[in-house]
Amino acid sequence: MMTSLAHWAMAAGFVLILIGFYGALTNRNLLRMIVAFCIADTGVNIVLVAVGHMRGRTAPILDSAVPVADAVSRIIDPVPQALVLTAIVIGLGVTAMMLAYALKLYEKKRTLDIAKFTELKW
């Protein structure tokens, strides 16, 4: 059972995702689109963590406070958090790649307007 805390976080995460999507779909500037995707990414991460969060448990770090024997019942499921870590890194990679694209595209056409890159179509 998730806490209301997690519920709020999750709700906020979904709102961020929607805001991000909205931003990506309405802003024609490449950089703005990337910003929007960043926000959506953050939202995804929040949702991920929120789903993994369970009431009354501690962080998934095995130290003296949490004996190994009790780990499974006392700590928060570590898997989602591991996923988020991976996702953040991948997200960075993707963002960096998109920024590199934006840069190159700007060098090529001197514009950042996505609607100007439509030579390939149909």
Partner: peptide, 26 residues
């Protein structure tokens, strides 16, 4: 510049895809 534009479009799409995938997975 054509390839670049295509690549960027690909990235846009994959952003959406990965969001769906991650949420679905979790």
């Amino acid at each position: 510049g054509l390839t670049l534009a295509a690549g960027f479009k690909y990235m846009i799409t994959s952003q959406f895809i990965s969001t769906f995938l991650l949420i679905g997975i979790i």
